[in-house]
Amino acid sequence: MALEIRHWRAFATAAETLHFGLAAERLGLTQPALSQLIKTLEDAFNVRLFDRSRRRVSLTEAGRTMLPEAQAVLSQSRRAERLGLVAGRSSSRTLAIGYVGSAALHPLFTRLIGRLTAIRPELILRLDQSAVTKQIAQVRDHNLDIGIIRSPMPALDPAIATLSLEREAMVLAIARNNIHAAGEGPCDLSDFSEEPFLQYRQQEGGGLYLLTQSACERAGFQPQISQTVPQIATMLALVGAGLGVALVPESASRLGMPGVVCRALRDPVVTDFNLIYRRADTAPALREALKAARSIHKASL
């Protein structure tokens, strides 16, 4: 029987865990199926790869010798998959776009997706809402063509370029029955130092969580976090329910959430609306998207 990637993967996973049950679970196999894959490999080379004579599993000398080779086979397979993705992207008319949830509220997002949708059927869009750090990794690994994110951003790989589309002010969302809701004009963030804050999910090195923390610290206080929320719509609903206040992008006020008032800040807090992509990517679909984004940005100035 010809050996396949699945045989090498079964052996490498069992060798790295030294536990057949755990290895089978990681691979989504039954333990007998895993054992059969490894037996096929052993029969092909007429060697024993594991010593299972005692309670614990260990590699034989042959197993220790073959493990680096198995890992090299798997590494080469993954590299071939990545190169295949790159080759496919270069001629594909499919455009994979990631975006953070708050980006979908911004008028530029609506205009960009509308412009790209109008190119159909020549251009097929695949949209995926995901966190900033996940988008950066997926753009780097060719699983996304474009990411739409907000600043502050984590450090980016030099291979990833950024196109800044617009700078947006953050506003303070307050329950309508809050004592500060009736004020006119911009408010001071420091006036809310004793209020509970609704906060975003924390992300490594960036995101609106970090922006909120930094803004409060500049105003002279640490926010008292009452709830951590993944979505702005949920955050505004909780603000309206009186669970706290929240810093949100100005475009979030478009939701018109009942019981919520959004007030500008005297000392502005801003977030950049950014598009990220692979700097060296020359795929026609990506280049069309960048052209559309630049055109929309220029028209909004």
Rank of each mutant, 00 (worst) to 15 (best):
A161H: 05
T110S: 13
L247C: 03
A264K: 12
A14V: 03
R294F: 05
A264I: 04
A285D: 05
D43I: 04
A161V: 05
H106Y: 08
R294P: 03
G207H: 07
T133K: 06
S130M: 15
F45N: 04
R294I: 05
L208C: 05
G63S: 02
A44K: 13
E4Y: 09
V245A: 00
A293M: 11
A62L: 08
P186T: 08
R201Y: 10
R89N: 14
L189D: 02
I232N: 04
R287N: 11
S92T: 13
Q31V: 15
R115D: 14
L74F: 07
A12D: 00
P186D: 13
M257Y: 04
L172F: 00
E25N: 13
L95W: 03
D141C: 07
L243G: 00
A137T: 11
F20I: 06
R6K: 15
H106I: 10
P196L: 08
R218S: 06
D267E: 15
R126W: 08
S164T: 15
G147D: 03
A104D: 07
P249V: 05
T30P: 03
R201I: 14
A182T: 15
R218Y: 00
Q224W: 05
L3M: 13
A264D: 15
A285T: 08
L189Q: 01
A299H: 10
R82W: 07
T17W: 04
S226P: 08
E166C: 08
P32S: 11
S164I: 08
V73E: 07
S90P: 02
E288M: 14
V269Q: 00
R52E: 09
V171H: 00
P249C: 05
T133H: 10
F221T: 02
Q231I: 09
R278H: 13
P230H: 09
A252V: 03
A285R: 07
I148M: 12
P152H: 10
Q203R: 03
A292P: 10
T60Q: 10
R54T: 15
G242A: 08
L34K: 02
M1H: 12
F197W: 15
P258E: 07
R9D: 04
A182C: 09
K291N: 13
L275R: 08
A169G: 05
V100S: 10
I5W: 06
M1N: 10
T94Y: 07
V47H: 04
L125P: 07
Y277R: 10
L18K: 11
S58N: 11
S58L: 11
A241I: 06
G147A: 01
L85P: 04
E195I: 01
Q203N: 03
T212M: 00
R218P: 00
E217S: 09
